[in-house]
Amino acid sequence: MSPILLAEQILNGVQLGVMLFVMAAGLTLVFGVMGLINLAHGSLFMVGAFAAAAVAGATGSFMLALVSALAAAAAAGALIEVLVIRRLYARDHLDQVLATFALILIFSEGTRWIFGSFPLYLNIPDYLSGPVTLPGGIQYPLYRLTLIGIGLAIAAGLFVLISKTRLGIQIRAGENDREMIAALGVDISKLYTIVFALGAGLAGLAGALVGAIQSVQVGMGEPVLILAFVVIVIGGIGSIKGALIGALLVGLTDTLGGVLLPHLFKLFTDPATATSAGSALASMLIYILMAVVLIWKPTGLFGARA
């Protein structure tokens, strides 16, 4: 394997990682602050992608599409928080899983009802399409580089929000002791709605960004949701820093494992077996990573609570 190919695969891993981070950030905040397992997070990812496809189709502007994806998913998030999720904070996790699973079904069939069963068209704008040549002669799609940039910018923005702003202080306080910050006069239900809408908006933005290079279709959010859960379990529940490190670990492991393992197996067996055994093991690799991390640190890399 040439160094150029390896460098390209590392970029691919980082790109997958930062998009997983944008998806997982909201999930980990909601779990950390409200103690809620939200399976419908993947549906908000889908809502963002569909809103972007609809707006891009109507106006032709990709920027407008991204803004509307963020807005639509945040609005959908705020709506379900007020109507459904709010009633679940005091219930146990099984009730939360059941109710948010029901939301997945409602979102999926609702989306099909509005947009139909066929995948929608959403594409990269012309000014971001095509490959660029990086130092060292690596040809890499400009859009994927943009995704890395946007993901890192969001990560930086979230760090500032959590560590420097008043809202961030309230969120951190909410993670540590809910009753106490309510007693101090913070409107806890408003805080919850804001955190939920923020997480939903980020999921919707991720859906729109990723939807441009993938297929915008009903059910697109669920595979990403599973990866996002792996990310927050590895990173430690409630930790933004953990989500970033976990997402990059998962992205790199998944990408490099898929490329390197079949090569590794070829040293021992014939090519056909190596391809299928390598691919099979590569798809398990992130779960093996998760298990190893949990054995080593049961609360995840940066998790505070058990």
């Binding site: 190919l5 695969q9 691919n12 790109q15 299928s276 691919s279």
Partner: peptide, 15 residues
């Protein structure tokens, strides 16, 4: 190459 069923990102395969 055998890819994962339901895979959505093919950056690695394309490389």
């Amino acid at each position: 190459l055998l890819t994962a069923l339901g895979q959505t990102d093919y950056a690695s395969e394309i490389a």
